[in-house]
Design a binder for these strands. Structure first.
Lengths: 232, 232
DNA sequence: AAAAAACGAGAGCACTGCTCTTGACGACAT
DNA sequence: ATGTCGTCAAGAGCAGTGCTCTCGTTTTTT
């Protein structure tokens, strides 16, 4: 199996796969996930509809590819945002991460919806999506761990994480929230939840006729929730 | 126009409409919104597919009916939860509301997804959806207003609502958050956002392999965010 | 009793995801 | 250089969808 000869065919195959996903992503960004049609993609490529099944045996497979790409795009955005901050500016890093996710979502609403919208019934996320899917969360967890290690988090005293959460916290401390107490982890998850909730609310129209100053109120929420977590 | 004579036809029409929406809701709860098919509903009713268009001229109209029903179901749940609390137990009322929404969502996941999931591209929510859609939020706003009027909210000092939000706050104070300062309104909206974010995260699988004690952590979040709002 | 409106049935259009078969082309070892 | 084998595009076809139009029939209105 000479690599060069095999590459001949595999190269055009890889190119076609890329072209398909690119066209599909473009269709996605105009028609939404439901309006994505394999036949339409094939048509635009000058292919007959059946030919496309050589590359994506089912529509779900195409969607999976787009989903993985979207997760990675978010992961990239978050990592880049985090990298642009001073390591010990923990609140700044959190704000930068939150901002980057909101910005990406506003720029790619349909791809965001693909990830954080209604799960397609019957669609089971394949195993190769879970790593890309957790990149942003891992970054956030590391930030909390960094802040806690630096003594930049004062443990909130007005609530206590439920005992049932302790096992979950143990697992999370394993690799992500290293050394972080239960209550702080849980508050971190709540803040994380708020952030995606806010982005989804804004994108899905729940703030229509309620909030017009979207960016500023998002910023306010992120900052006030930083205090909620205990970030000083 | 004798009411009795006109009712003859209109009564069976109303019954058919109810039967259609009931069947549609059942299909929705098993196949999800995407899998809802007018033809399948008609088939189950022993109707020919074209006949159903006499009652719902388009699939979107059927979905709209289901959406309104879902909004009203949430509104009912929240109102009932609130009514079961002592008027001056503000934190308890908030917890009851949050719980009721989570419970309803867990019991009707697909209907919930219809409302808080990906908006269908091209679907424009008709005017008669906005009133049912805002029932839960209005209840929440009234609660905050009640609590503030009773002096049960201590204005948080670590952040200040952005000036751009002031106009929004003014409008919200008009009928819902009567007398509530900007910062408290905004924190209320953030808490509200967290709550729906948490329900969506739980329902859409984002807490898989992260949080197993769902009810307890939700409770913790609701309580800690009550403090975040300033509820004493 | 006559006119108007509402209705169910059926055929049909354009579209979808997906399958199967057929014939051509390219890569491979002999 | 030849024959074999896997890959590929193409086409026809199936079952399903939303939706439209027409045509008798029934019910309501006038």
């Amino acid at each position: 199996m000479t690599t060069a000869s095999r590459t001949a065919r595999e190269r055009v195959r890889a190119e076609l796969i890329k072209e398909i996903t690119d066209i599909a992503r473009r269709h996605l960004s105009t028609e939404g996930a439901a309006g994505l049609s394999l036949r339409a993609v094939a048509r635009e490529m000058g292919m007959v509809s059946s030919a496309i099944y050589r590359y994506f045996p089912t529509k779900d497979d195409l969607l999976t590819a787009l989903i993985i790409d979207a997760y990675n795009a978010i992961g990239d955005a978050v990592e880049q945002a985090d990298a642009g901050c001073a390591r010990d500016d923990f609140t700044g890093r959190w704000l930068a991460m939150a901002r980057s996710i909101r910005q990406w979502a506003l720029a790619h609403p349909h791809e965001y919806a693909l990830i954080h919208g209604t799960p397609v019934p019957g669609y089971q996320a394949p195993a190769d999506t879970v790593d890309p899917a957790s990149r942003d969360g891992v970054m956030f967890g590391r930030l909390i761990a960094d802040a806690h290690a630096a003594g930049a988090i004062t443990l909130p005293q007005d609530t206590r994480a439920p005992v049932g959460f302790h096992d979950d916290a143990e697992a999370l401390r394993e690799a992500i929230f290293v050394g972080v107490p239960d209550e702080v982890i849980l508050r971190g998850l709540h803040a994380w939840t708020w952030m995606y909730g806010a982005v989804s609310f804004e994108l899905f129209g729940m703030y229509n006729n309620v909030i017009s100053e979207r960016a500023a109120t998002f910023e306010h929420g992120a900052l006030s929730l930083a205090h909620y977590i205990g970030l000083t």
